[in-house]
Amino acid sequence: MDYFIELLFGGLTRGSIYALIALGYTMVYGIIGLINFAHGEIYMIGAFTSFIVATVLSIYGFPLLAIVVIAALAAAVWSSAYGVTIEKIAYRPLRHAPRLSPLISAIGMSIFLQNYVLLAQTSDFLPFPALIPEFAFMEPVAHIVGSSDLVILITTTLVMFALTLLIKFTRIGKAMRATAQDRTMAMLVGINVDRVISATFVIGSALAALGGMLIASHIGQINFYIGFLAGIKAFTAAVLGGIGSIPGAVLGSLVLGLTESFATGYVSSDYEDVFAFSLLVLILIFKPSGLLGKAETKKV
């Protein structure tokens, strides 16, 4: 039973990290219909930025709480900046190009950013400082649920809640929903679509950066290549839930996290990634509209 609960929490933790990344995919897809292949790299850059900032601050002797807050802010700020810049350079000029052109551009961006970090930093795995302390009150259950699991679950829940409020009630949230429904119409009623798209990239990137920092601190190491796998898995989760749908992304992420956790726990850990990729292939083949998405109807 303990093992089951351990796997359950492990799955939920994984799932909520996937959700933080998957939201970025799904929001961007909802608004400009592009698979933002470089999104995994945004997550990686977020993790790297928080790693650099946290390490510098800890060397200079800052207290833990200050380190966590500043590192999280820095990760969010810089990841958002990268997100917006990528959109401007690599996607905006291609907004009216054939559908595959921005995707190829996104793949190029992803490879570019990986190698940029590789060259500017290192190809080695780096130890990530432990940002989440072991809480005393978690002692009795620590062998099943770690403190960082708890923190990740609570943080992501709060973030999801805030995001829902933002999209439901704020001006920019409404503008985003309008743009997602019909970009031309949104433009006609006076919504600055460029700004809405930028805002979408900012939010998506900040969420991914937060995910990057949390998971890096949870696992304890980072590397320039972590974005590729995480990106694909989060994309799988977004498609599983129905790409373009925000609740879908969360649901898909939890389903993916739990299945991965139980499959590796009870079946075999060798094929962990094969499992996610197979799931991706199967969903796209059999139910490309996902769990909560709407099927597209072709117009003739």
Binding site: I89, A90, P93, L94, A97, S101, P102, I104, S105, I107, G108, M109, S110, I111, F112, L113, Q114, N115, Y116, L118, L119
Partner: peptide
């Protein structure tokens, strides 16, 4: 050669934008 992959990434982006 160190910049090989960096260049490949950049080529994909640049070609799409300037000379698809």
């Amino acid at each position: 050669s160190e910049y090989r992959m960096l260049a490949f990434g950049a080529i994909l982006v640049i070609m799409m934008i300037f000379r698809p």
